[in-house]
Design a protein around this nucleic acid. Sequence first.
DNA 1: GACGAACTAGAACGAACGCTCTATCCAGAG
DNA 2: CTCTGGATAGAGCGTTCGTTCTAGTTCGTC
Lengths: 189, 189
Amino acid sequence: MQTSTRDRIVLAASRLVQRQGYVGTGIKQIAKEADATLGSVYHFFPGGKEAVAVAAIRHGDQEFAALLREALDSQEDPAAAVDACARLLATALRASDWVDGCPVTAAALETLGTDSEIQQACADALRGWQDVVADKLVRAGIARADARELAGTVISALEGAEVTAQVMRSEEPLLQAGRQLARLVATYR
Amino acid sequence: MQTSTRDRIVLAASRLVQRQGYVGTGIKQIAKEADATLGSVYHFFPGGKEAVAVAAIRHGDQEFAALLREALDSQEDPAAAVDACARLLATALRASDWVDGCPVTAAALETLGTDSEIQQACADALRGWQDVVADKLVRAGIARADARELAGTVISALEGAEVTAQVMRSEEPLLQAGRQLARLVATYR
DNA sequence: GACGAACTAGAACGAACGCTCTATCCAGAG
DNA sequence: CTCTGGATAGAGCGTTCGTTCTAGTTCGTC
């Protein structure tokens, strides 16, 4: 077998949760998509659905962070780098026919009042991405305090723009946000 | 009876969908919360759950638009007005213990692949809010094309910052976004 | 006072949910 | 070879889902 059953479960769960959210995705659907059986899922994740979701979100977190780093490193100038992020997200989103958005937003919103581990995993992801952006800004010579606040805004704006792009089925919101964020970053000199 | 049964259903559905999303909210729960019976719900909304959700989202749309207009009109300067929006959202969010976020995001993300009427209603809401912000910017003397692009970014950023604030259980993301957006708006002179 | 429409009330349906359970398979240790 | 324990397999549990259905109630109009 190429990939382990466990990995296939996490991968399938990650994709499904990203597209349909936590409550919208069933354990049986995950098992089917992963070419695994229900027994296997509960064998590897005794914690049940929530445990699977946490693993899935952490996986999506890492994947997205890598994407972000790659886009940021493709440009020297921080403003251009942020714009490159938006552009990358836009093309990826279009390629998936607007369904593969942010891997944590949907799950995060659905589990807000429930103080489950899922929420914690989502918060960790957002914090991590902000750190990735902040690092780039600091390396480009922006003061640490400014970089942190700017990075938070960049992540929030990209997140919001991605949702908007998905709903509108258009790359424009992301491209707009990229241009405006670049303009904003450029004011820190 | 103070409010009509229909109105109570829409109101309850709006609140529940905002907090738990579309799939996470059951018809029976809506009926219970609205002090109505299942029969009443299907009487007023023969289209079933989806019809209730569409009405609920449209209601949330109007409510949010009014909130936005109010905040924008409270300040003459467009940069200060945008910041006031973020501030208002932040205090409202904290007051609800971080559960009453954007009334359409959750529902929009869950119904992405399904081309239901819900998605259309969400897209309409986002477009409407963007128009509200764009109007304010134009009235403040910003060129129409710039105002539209800027308004789109403002809405996206506020949306994303609200989600981030909910996940982090902190007002900071929204306040940050407000400051940075104000700075961005101020560059258009 | 009678009639039809509007509305309320909740029992019941099939499907899907998350989860538990037992049974089977199979590689490696003794 | 037997024995053992991780991994696989899926039937079935109780519950909840969205929806449908039939009565019952209310009420303005003739």
